[in-house]
């Protein structure tokens, strides 16, 4: 039964981890704005696309210069 001590310790540590995660989330302001991040995340793809496009354009320009 002494394995219980280790198990209790483990479960306690895990719970502490969640508590710290929660405190961090409050501190970093995640409870203040629950809408904007949901829109912001959509841009990531978008920017990659447009920057890829730019690179292509730049390449073309270089080609012309050659």
């Amino acid at each position: 039964m002494s394995v219980m001590f280790i198990l209790i310790g483990c479960s306690f540590l895990m719970a502490v981890g969640f508590l710290i995660a929660f405190i961090w989330s409050v501190k970093s302001g995640q409870m203040e704005d629950d809408y904007t991040p949901s829109v912001r995340i959509l841009y990531d793809d978008f920017e990659r696309e447009s920057s890829a496009q730019n690179k292509q354009e730049n390449k073309e320009e270089i080609n012309i210069n050659k």
């Binding site: 209790i8 479960s11 719970a15 502490v16 508590l19 405190i23 409050v26 501190k27 409870m31």
Partner: peptide, 22 residues
């Protein structure tokens, strides 16, 4: 003020869960 309440709830919830388990 508002953030403090969140911390208090978080701490109370954490302790409540563990105490119940034990």
């Amino acid at each position: 003020e508002n953030k403090k309440l969140f911390y208090q709830i978080g701490v109370a919830g954490f302790c409540f869960g563990n105490i119940m388990l034990i």
